[in-house]
Write a protein that binds this DNA or RNA. Structure first.
Lengths: 226, 226
DNA sequence: AAGAAAACTGGACCGCGGTCCGCTTATGGT
DNA sequence: ACCATAAGCGGACCGCGGTCCAGTTTTCTT
């Protein structure tokens, strides 16, 4: 499923979050909406690059994804890779873009309990669980795609999750500092943390899952489900 | 105060957290206990390196701390820097070691409300505030010293904080999954998050502080102070 | 159709983090 | 005092991320 990504879109670049061109935006969910008028050859190269990167991951793991290796595998110059994706992190993020959009679509307009239709509290619970398992599935890539600490929260995908959680929280605990609370909640879903807990401390995912539900319950002052 | 660090100790290395030699441990708080029988010249070079690094930070900011630059400034070979500190992160951590030990001493054996003597809940509140302001003071260094995501939680200093918070939580909410709760709490004090909130989103420290108190109140099901 | 401007390309180039290994120097036993 | 040995040293070396720019290709305009 990694391989289905290549045609994903890229809307106009971001002012503050510098991305040379291709910003794997994730602002609106549109069905990989408009291919941002990339020149034909550029689009072709973009696809070849993503395919090459995916292949390299499959063969040598994330560590094998060297910018030069990707360029070579795609039979493209190194400069092209950087022009397209800005930096290694950008390339890796682009690889995750598809699943990120999927998640976003799910909680923005999918069926309950994730999407609209369920009570906010339930949506929040489902949201965390979804993020948890999604991250667990792609842990290596998620870890490798982590930008330097200064950028971590500036990225649009992160912003999207944040906004959503904040919105839900406002409906559940209107008097709280929901923005801060959202950050706290999301921090506990950080891929790096999941990695540490599951792989370095051997916790089973179920524990993390009930941990999330408990956390939500405590923060919102509600009863845990069941 | 950065400049008072140089003589800090280093106990025997860590099995799992690979550090070539000098592990800026922070396991026991001992008064920078035993200089770990470093050879005389090695100890001298270590001091010179830390001093050089601090000087470089003062002059050119953290970004100016290049391993080669540090080596040159200390009039030492590049290999020596790596032998001593393992990698750039290790060097930067060593620079933070002093204040880390200080903090640890404060909450392990200092006066209340941080140290023993106060009620666990109060200690927890004070702990967060202390961490918050300490991180804010040294934000740049803290950010730069952040290791790759895989190592973030493996570091002894992090472990020390974690243990402490877990212990306090066990006294406050004995029936909860305190280990997980501790991780959630500590995540919300991550320097990267503090950086984002204060510098990128312009929140004043006071807001973070009351945010912390509120978070503790909610998680422990207690009333916020005052 | 043709020319000009804009976009894209690729590879040479740079700096830094990290490794390696032959040489030097401290240390502790006798 | 002296030697054997372990510990430490330093700089040449490597690979990778990232930049740059002269040259090429595409697209737009008329």
């Amino acid at each position: 499923m990694l391989y289905a990504v290549f045609m994903s879109s890229a809307l106009p670049p971001f002012p503050e979050y510098q991305e040379p061109r291709d910003a794997h935006q994730l602002l609106e969910v549109g069905p990989a909406s408009d291919e941002p008028c990339l020149r034909a050859d550029a689009a072709r190269n973009r696809a070849r690059l993503l395919e090459a990167a995916a292949r390299l991951i499959a063969e040598h793991g994330v560590a094998g994804v060297t910018m030069e290796a990707v360029a070579a595998a795609a039979e493209v110059g190194k400069g092209t890779v950087f022009r397209r994706f800005g930096d290694r992190t950008g390339l890796l993020m682009a690889l995750l873009d598809h699943s990120a959009r999927q998640l976003q679509a799910d909680f923005l307009s999918g069926p309950p309990p994730l999407g609209p239709g369920a009570a906010p509290l339930e949506r929040l619970r489902a949201f965390g669980v979804a993020v948890l398992y999604r991250s667990a599935e792609q842990l290596d890539l998620q870890l490798a795609a982590q930008p330097e600490p200064t950028r971590r929260f500036a990225h649009p995908a992160a912003g999207s999750l944040r906004t959503h959680v904040t919105m839900l929280l406002r409906q559940i605990v209107p008097d709280a500092d929901c923005e801060l609370l959202a950050h706290a909640l999301l921090s506990s879903l950080d891929p790096a943390l999941i990695h540490h807990l599951t792989r370095q401390r051997g916790m089973p995912m179920e524990r993390l899952e009930t941990g999330w539900l408990d956390l939500v319950a405590r923060l919102t002052g509600t009863e845990p489900p069941r």
